Simulated scan of single mutants.
Amino acid sequence: MPIPSNGWGAVETLIWNQKIYCEALGHTVDILNQRGLAPALAAKPWTYDVVHVHFDSLTEFWNLLSVHLDFKLVVTSHYGYAAFPRKWGTGYMATFKSLMESERLIVLSEEILKVFQRKGFKGVIGVLPNGTETKQFLFKKDALLKSAICLGRIEIRKGQAEIAKKILTKRNMVCDFVGPADSIKFKVDNKHVRYLGEWDRAAVHKNLTNYSCLILFSDGEAHPLVILEAMAAGLSLVISKEASANLDTGQPWIHLCESADEAVEHAEQAIRDNHLYREQIRKYAEENFDCSVIAQKYIEMIS
């Protein structure tokens, strides 16, 4: 997938923003977006102060390379279930073993940090949340639509089909679904549940602020970028506990839910109350998750 992504590559978007904001702080940042030994050697990783790998399935490869070529390596896993070992597949179990053998890790939440600590990680490890470019998102003091949005790739883990089914049963609210649908099917009535297809990045930046709340009823997230983007646009949050990493869940505009029924009920309230909090939500995103804030912490962490 290209970097920067014009569509649904959250990690690619994060990498690009990290580059731009670190360069604004006076650092030189290059991106390698190819696999294999030849591209890795051509990039001359030993000439950099630090190499940061975001593709965790290549951890073993880069660990070995850093030993043989003597360069400082940091690895980050963006695996959605990283904080939830009971949900790991066999593929990630092998990746986790390599991560445990790394010298330096940057993880996306305290919950993920605790997993590595419990497993006995012996290297250097720190927590750095994801960031978003707040100024890229149009912000309106009042939502144009008294409705919710589910934004992101439509997949079983994120529970969109279950949410759609509950909304169609109750018919008390409107929710738009935006993102690649792949093989996941769900019913729409084009009144309460609407599927709008895919948006490019420009459409996300422009359209997200039209909504009152974001619904993310996921059973596993590391630190979802879509939540930061929704806050930058002024939306209230209706999310599962598994999607709440790094958030102050005591905020009145953050609604935690344990079931699809709860999610729909909380969304109805969030839509009603969103106008009370939009400026507060935007400010919270700017102060805690803007790329300018995260980039400074990042430089301090890897120095």
Rank of each mutant, 00 (worst) to 15 (best):
F217I: 15
I215K: 06
E162F: 03
L151Y: 05
G152A: 11
H192D: 13
L144K: 13
E242H: 12
L144A: 11
V204C: 05
F137Q: 07
L237P: 06
A143V: 10
R201W: 01
K141Q: 14
L228C: 11
R171T: 12
F139T: 14
I184D: 02
E242V: 13
I154D: 01
A148W: 00
E155V: 15
V174A: 13
I167H: 03
V178Y: 01
V178L: 05
D219Y: 08
K170R: 15
H205W: 10
E221S: 03
L225G: 06
M173F: 08
S244Q: 04
C213M: 08
I125W: 01
H223Q: 13
L138A: 11
L216D: 05
E155Y: 00
I227W: 00
V174I: 15
D219H: 09
L145G: 03
G126V: 12
K146P: 05
Y195F: 14
L235G: 10
A222I: 10
K165C: 04
I154V: 15
M231L: 13
V188A: 13
K165G: 00
K135D: 08
R153C: 04
K140G: 02
K140N: 14
I215T: 13
A203Y: 00
N210Y: 04
K187W: 00
T209P: 03
S147T: 08
A164D: 03
